[in-house]
């Protein structure tokens, strides 16, 4: 897998980008994922704000709901849940597509026509993921913050100006950065696992199925584990308080 990644990045740097393929992937990964990601962001933001409000109300500090919910959404929930959704939606589809191309000799056909499959198939997927996932995470975060506000303020009666004030006071630009940086690395994890699983699939319909599920499951688990370490590294070294 390391060799595979190295090969891809060398190709990304040394060879011209396949624009048409990349746009196609951007559409599939980015544009078509917006709805799923927005729904994820909105309902997670909403339920999180509600839970926090219930607990904080007991302590009489409802107005802190906004800052806590927003922090959680920016730093953890937004990037992680979005990455999980994309691992399921896009990672599995990529693995299935590549595995099918492999078993039906389409990848051999590309090579036989003197086309380098990494350049034609893999690099566009990497580029599309690395661009799309941070943007999708930003979308999820936005949706989450707005939904949190809607639940906390009009629905549960937290004081609106206070809510915003607290967000402004406790949430900084670095919190958004943490989310977006994580998203960027998650995108690499997902696309690497998906492409590698797809291309190393065995032959037969069963192998395609296996490659597909393994891509989604392995990518999701890798995201969850990596998230813990990213959090540590980012909070301790990159943005120390």
């Amino acid at each position: 897998m390391g060799i595979f990644m190295a090969e891809t990045f060398v190709c990304l740097i040394t060879r011209p980008l396949r624009v048409e393929q990349t746009v196609q992937q951007l559409y599939f990964v980015g544009v078509l994922s917006q709805f799923v990601v927005l729904v994820t962001g909105i309902f997670t933001g909403a339920v999180f704000a509600a839970q926090i409000q219930f607990q904080f109300a007991k302590l009489g500090m409802e107005s802190a709901t906004g800052s806590v919910a927003t922090l959680a959404i920016c730093r953890e929930l937004g990037p992680v849940l979005t990455a999980l959704m994309i691992a399921g939606r896009v990672g599995s589809a990529m693995a299935a597509e590549l595995a099918t191309m492999k078993i039906s000799e389409q990848i051999d056909a590309l090579r036989a026509l003197a086309v380098y499959p990494v350049e034609y198939l893999i690099v566009p997927r990497y580029v599309a993921m690395m661009i799309s996932l941070p943007l999708l995470v930003a979308l999820a975060i936005t949706g989450g913050i707005i939904a949190g506000y809607v639940v906390a303020v009009p629905l549960l009666g937290v004081d609106g100006p206070y809510y915003w004030d607290n967000i402004n006071k406790f949430v900084e630009a670095k919190d958004i950065w943490i989310g977006l940086i994580k998203a960027f690395f998650f995108s690499i994890i997902i696309v690497t696992v998906a492409c590698h699983k797809g291309l190393s699939s065995g032959s037969g319909a069963e192998s395609v199925g296996k490659a597909t599920t393994e891509a989604a499951v392995n990518a999701s688990i890798s995201v969850l584990i990596a998230n813990f370490f990213f959090t540590l590294i980012l909070l301790k070294f990159v943005f120390p308080t």
């Binding site: 039906s104 000799e105 389409q106 051999d108 056909a109 036989a112």
Partner: peptide
């Protein structure tokens, strides 16, 4: 080369 299975890009 013409592949045995065709290998068309589907």
């Amino acid at each position: 080369i013409v592949f045995q299975g065709g290998a068309l890009f589907d």
